[in-house]
Nucleic acid binder design. Structure first.
Length: 559
RNA sequence: GGUCCGAUAGCUCAGUCGGUAGAGCAAAUGGCUUUUAACCAUUGGGUCCCAGGUUCGAGUCCUGGUCGGAUCACCA
């Protein structure tokens, strides 16, 4: 295997060469250009990130006051000096702050003063540097550069570099909260140019392959209505929009994803569930109908499969005496990639002893309402031109749903599923539990006591997508065995996705499993709904893609 | 896997009928001590995705390929 040259990875061009030159000149001025740390101040009570400082009440209050005054001014008008001076006196009392971040705009140098915005990935704040008025700190000693060298060093900063500054907060003549810099420390270089400050990254390939660049672009992008001082956290309310009313930035999408996941965990733990971890590499790929990834374990010389579902392991734990368990982690399915399928996807599965399918629907509804509200701040979500209303979940049998959404369409018992898939699923926009599934396609669920051709099973549909699937768990080992045998017969007939018999699972059930209900919830799809994203790749940080291919001419060095 | 669409400067994009490769941003140089998509002046920057073909001449037309997107089928 050939080792690519550094220059093949970071290709030289006028942009990178300029940055490289700046870096070498900076090295001459400040010594170490990749120092190990920068100590931030604690004015806000905890470590002063830019976001923490901006949301610290005394500072937020000043921002709000000046913001209200500026909002009333005309195009070229400036806020009155006496108001500004009074606010500046309040800011000065807070003392010096030490903050760090990425240079968020190309530095604006104007003769003998300069303005730069720093970003902490969420919020940005302006810093103001005046020649003769601030110094660069050397990174290999405690010395400072003289003002002339400091000004020279400032000119070597590029859009995207990391710097740390110390200074005092003040309001500029135009009314923007800024840091008047007294000391500046160089922290790290950006050797590659930042994404276009107005457009960000348009190419979906780069957005997904180089998520880091996408995240930078989303934090540095200049929006048509820039968020003036208000931290992004203030956007917690509202639908899939951030403070300015625009679509969520990439950063905000993944913050919202994190919020819904932590809320799901909290709700489950508050209701007595414990989180468990079951094998991802398993000798049998079962518990769902899907093609698995296959690998080989050398030491044991056996084939292992990446799990397609944790279901059968979790139910073994019910046998073992855990009454409420959940697992929130990845499943792997070796199938097509689409806007709603990624080869690895995140599933929340949980099981509750002594509960049936109806109790599970009730609980699922409460869980989703709570988590959606926590993550998005509302139960009404704008999505693809519809308003999804999470305050109301319909429950309807598969048979009745066909009558309601596809009136006049004939559906004999053996066709009910395909008729449902083609005629009903595309119409299920609002949260809908479909119940009464045919038992034949539900090999792990209990039959309905009222009508044994149905399983006590539901699927939750939202915006034409299956978001959850749950049922009363079959706990009769003999019947489970018979169902597996039926599945194996399907397999023999060529259905590659029919379920595989798991002997150990039958043995486990034979020790006795309490009546129980279980569910799987697709976290990626739920996140799509919460963030108004139409592709699963937009809610997975590093979605699967074909590997990047290097130019073959460049990758064959002499042997 | 099928169908449709796309790839041009570091980034975002134009490029007419086949006739010398364009803009904005970014970069470089100079100016400017409160700017904020800063501004003004000057300069540099191209494997037009790759390989063939048609043609006097191809970014443009044709064929094949690579990568990506949308969509359909299977899956959650």
């Amino acid at each position: 295997m050939s080792i690519p040259q550094f220059e093949e990875i970071v290709e030289p061009n006028d942009q990178t060469e300029a940055r490289h030159e700046h870096l070498e000149k900076l090295r001459g001025l400040v010594g170490n250009v990749y120092p190990n740390k920068f100590k931030r101040s604690h004015v806000s009570g905890s470590e002063d990130t830019i976001t923490a400082l901006l949301s610290y009440p005394p500072i937020a209050a000043v921002s709000t006051e000046i913001g209200e005054i500026v909002a009333k001014l005309g195009e070229r008008e400036r806020p009155p000096a006496e108001i500004k001076d009074a606010l500046n006196a309040r800011l000065k009392e807070l003392g010096n702050v030490r903050i760090a971040g990425r240079v968020a705009v190309p530095p604006r140098v104007m003769g003998k003063a300069a303005f730069v915005h720093l970003s902490d990935g969420i919020s940005r704040i302006q810093i103001y540097c005046r020649k003769e008025d601030f110094v660069f700190v050397r990174n290999d000693s405690r010395d400072s550069l003289d003002p002339q060298d400091s000004w020279t060093a400032f000119g070597l900063l590029d859009h995207g570099d990391f710097i740390g500054v110390e200074g005092y907060l003040f309001i500029t003549n135009t009314g923007e909260l800024s840091v008047h810099v007294e000391q500046l420390q160089f922290l790290a270089k950006a050797m590659l140019p930042m994404p276009d400050k107005m457009h960000g990254i348009a190419d979906p390939e780069i957005r997904q392959r180089q998520r880091y660049a996408d995240l930078i672009a989303s934090s540095l992008q200049v929006r048509s209505e820039p968020p003036t001082g208000a931290p992004a956290a203030a956007s917690a309310s509202g639908v899939a929009k951030s403070a300015g009313g625009q679509d969520l930035t990439t950063r905000e999408v993944f913050e919202r994803r994190a919020r819904v996941i932590s809320s799901l965990r909290r709700f489950l733990e508050d209701h007595g569930y414990i989180e468990v971890e079951t094998p991802m590499l398993t000798p049998k790929a079962t518990g769902a109908a899907a093609k698995p990834f296959e690998t080989h374990h050398n030491a044991l010389d056996i084939t292992l499969y990446a799990r397609i579902a944790p279901e059968l392991y979790l139910k073994r734990l019910l046998v073992g005496g855990f009454e409420k368990v959940y697992e929130l982690n990845r499943n792997f399915r070796n199938e097509g990639i689409s806007y709603k399928h990624n080869p690895e996807f995140t599933m929340l599965e949980f099981y509750c002893a002594y509960m049936d399918v109806n109790g599970m629907m009730d609980f699922c509804e409460e869980l989703l309402k709570e988590s959606v509200l926590n993550a998005a701040g509302t139960l009404q979500l704008e999505y693809e031109g519809n308003t999804l209303d999470f305050s109301n979940f319909e429950r309807i049998s598969m048979r009745d749903a066909i009558g309601k959404y596809a009136p006049g369409v004939e559906a004999r018992d053996n066709e009910i599923v395909s008729v449902f898939d083609t005629h009903v699923e595309p119409k299920l926009i609002q949260p809908t539990f479909i119940i009464d599934f045919p038992k034949s396609i539900s090999p792990l669920s209990k039959a309905s006591p009222e009508n044994p051709i149905f399983a006590e099973r539901f699927e939750l549909y939202i915006n034409r997508m299956e978001v959850a699937n749950g049922f009363s768990e079959l706990n009769d080992p003999r019947e489970q065995y018979d169902r597996f045998v039926d599945q194996m017969a399907e397999r023999e007939r060529g259905d590659e996705e029919a379920m595989v018999l798991d002997e150990d699972y039958i043995r486990a059930l034979s020790y006795g499993m309490p009546p129980a209900a279980g569910i799987g919830i697709g976290i990626d799809r739920l996140t799509m709904l919460l963030t108004n994203k139409h592709s699963i790749r937009d809610v997975i940080l590093f979605p699967h893609m074909r590997p990047e291919r290097r130019d073959p001419d460049l990758s064959e060095p002499p042997a």
